[in-house]
């Protein structure tokens, strides 16, 4: 009722007063692409989803558990284990959530991508954002988006196959601090499958140094498929389990939080995730069929 009265009022005013010419058209009218302020383009995402969909469905045969625990609105920080020489978990998680929940997901990653021509641009168009506390805070608190982060960083994918499903150190707990400051929950996701999709046999640190990349892996895929193995994953069965969201009973918006509290929370999330992984592995009968 109030709304309709208001609109009549506006209509009356508009009919009496000559409207000033708008100097500046709406941004949406003059834009030529749908690239947002982070570089993500929904158009590019839909192309990427269409391309990835057969792999998601028939190659990895992805199965989710507890997807309803991911908030359907408002910011949340998704935290997962990270594995595979070229990690396959990131596209699987982002694809799955965007398809199932219809919400965009922004993935935080090392700034190193931005330096590489084409790769950096593509990565940005499909939702990649440089992992910087300011970026995470703006996405989570100001814009209420879903943000995916791998607290292990490159330590996760660069580990040897012998260390599979053993979580590395969770950085310096920065992800917990960001979630506290933004006042949003952390949703841990345990991923089983990525480890075996592209296992690392050995690493070549000298080549990595020359190329300026964090690590240079020699993968089992290269031995099995030849050069094609650089991009082709093994058809392992993917299972993902969304764990209970972790909320922090601290006031948001603080510049700093007690380091011991932050480390405690980070460690507790790491333990929960590790236990969930072991639990899922106990149930798994086969790498290929789950």
């Amino acid at each position: 009722m109030a709304a309709s009265r208001k609109s009549t009022e506006q209509a009356t005013i508009a009919s009496l007063v000559p409207l000033a010419r708008r100097d500046e058209p709406e941004s949406s009218d003059i834009r030529l692409s749908d690239v947002d302020e982070w570089g993500r383009s929904e158009h590019m995402r839909s192309i990427a989803r269409a391309a990835f969909s057969p792999f998601y469905r028939y190659w990895f045969r992805v199965e989710w558990e507890g997807l309803e625990k991911i908030p359907s609105q408002g910011g949340a920080l998704l935290v997962a284990n990270h594995a595979g020489a070229i990690p396959s978990d990131a596209p699987v998680i982002i694809h799955g959530i965007e398809e199932e929940l219809g919400r965009p997901v922004y993935g935080l990653a090392d700034y190193f991508f931005r330096r590489i021509p084409f790769v950096g641009t593509m990565w940005s168009r499909v939702g990649g954002v440089t992992a910087h506390p300011d970026n995470a805070l703006r996405l989570l608190r100001d814009q209420g988006q879903l943000v995916l982060v791998f607290p292990e960083g490159t330590k996760g994918p660069s580990k040897s196959y012998a260390d599979r499903y053993r979580l590395r150190r969770f950085g310096r707990g920065g992800f917990v601090e960001i979630a506290m400051r933004a006042g949003i929950p952390i949703v841990p996701i345990a991923v089983v499958g990525a480890e075996e999709s592209m296992p690392i046999i050995t690493r070549l640190p000298r080549v990595a140094k020359v190329l300026g990349v964090p690590y240079f892996p020699v993968t089992a895929n290269l031995l099995a498929f030849g050069p094609l193995g650089a991009v082709l994953y093994f058809p392992v069965k993917f299972k993902l389990r969304v764990l209970d969201p972790v909320r922090f009973d601290v006031p948001s918006g603080q510049e700093r939080y007690s380091k011991s509290r932050v480390m405690e929370e980070a460690e507790s999330i790491r333990t929960t995730l590790q236990e969930a992984l072991y639990d899922m592995l106990r149930e798994r009968r086969s790498i290929w069929f789950g």
Binding site: E37, W38, Y111, T130, H132, D134, N135, R138
Partner: peptide, 9 residues
């Protein structure tokens, strides 16, 4: 640079 945040404060 590549190390920059998306928005400088």
């Amino acid at each position: 640079t590549e190390l920059d945040p998306s928005w400088f404060r």
